[in-house]
């Protein structure tokens, strides 16, 4: 079984972001970038499938500029076998939109024949949460989104996936091939060890020009304006529980 994992290079979760002067986008020129945390969880899950001898090959796919190779290397250091870098100069946090990403992945699927796509449920830059669903639609594959547990059947023909839904947990069975998207509690990703970081250098990354895949990359959504969230008013400290209750009552919150 061959598993494809999407790894997006996004602004580091701990980085402070600023908005460009033209208010059309977040300024990413000098911000620390990292692998999208949900993608990292997807990589971890794929690598565990490989360690359990369920998957034979794990392929990390990233779409983006030259530096996207850094997150592919990170996936390789975690245990993925090889990488595919789909190159584009479009900004992946807003110009290259979910439908185009899903179309690129669908095009790769035809060529490489994976048994599953494991994706993060969303990227922390645009927070779209759409690619997995659209990809399943384009491929006409079943989808198991927001996974918190993945179990592949012995004959590798299906997967039992526990999903985190509003009311609690839902367990579904999907025939393979399928698209699975990872939620936060699926696993705790490992730290790439220093020897594995060095070994990752020797693993292969193929490069494909996004424009060569014959899919329409044009965006469907126009960004009108990006603005800062409203600044929070400073809070105040109270001496004890009585004072807290009195204040909540005074403000009509109790």
């Amino acid at each position: 079984m061959r598993v494809f994992v999407g790894v997006k290079r996004a602004v580091d979760y701990a980085a402070k972001v600023r908005i460009q002067a033209d208010k059309k986008a977040v300024d990413i020129s000098n911000v620390k970038m990292a692998i999208n945390p949900f993608c990292e969880i997807a990589v971890e899950e794929a690598v565990r499938l490989k360690e359990k001898k369920v998957a034979e090959e794990v392929v990390a796919v990233s779409i983006g500029p030259k530096q996207a190779q850094e997150v592919i290397r990170q996936a390789l250091a975690m245990g993925a076998d090889r990488g595919i870098h789909v190159t584009t100069d479009m900004r992946v946090d807003q110009e290259l939109q979910p439908l185009a990403v899903a179309k690129i992945m669908a095009a790769l699927t035809g060529e490489h024949d994976p048994s599953a796509w494991l994706l993060g449920k969303q990227a922390i830059d645009d927070d779209s949460n759409q690619v997995a669903q659209m990809l399943a639609g384009l491929l006409d594959w079943p989808q198991a989104t927001f996974a918190s547990e993945v179990e592949v059947s012995e004959d590798k023909k299906s997967a039992t996936v526990t999903r985190e839904i509003d009311g609690g947990l839902q367990t579904i069975e999907v025939p393979l091939p399928a698209v699975i998207s990872a939620d936060l509690r699926l696993n705790e990703p490992r730290y790439a060890t220093l020897p594995n970081i060095m070994k990752a250098k020797k693993k292969k990354i193929d490069t494909v020009d996004a424009a060569s895949l014959g899919v329409d990359l044009a965006g469907q959504i126009e960004v009108l304006e990006v603005s800062e969230p409203a600044t929070r008013e400073a809070g105040s400290k109270v001496e004890d529980v009585d004072a807290l209750l009195a204040k909540l009552k005074a403000d009509g919150l109790l």
Binding site: T193, L194, K201
Partner: peptide, 18 residues
């Protein structure tokens, strides 16, 4: 270098978390 950066990032993360 790319290697140096990768090692540094890995250590930074480990140090912060663990």
């Amino acid at each position: 270098s790319e290697d140096e950066q990768a090692l540094k990032d890995a250590v930074q993360r480990f140090a912060q978390d663990r």
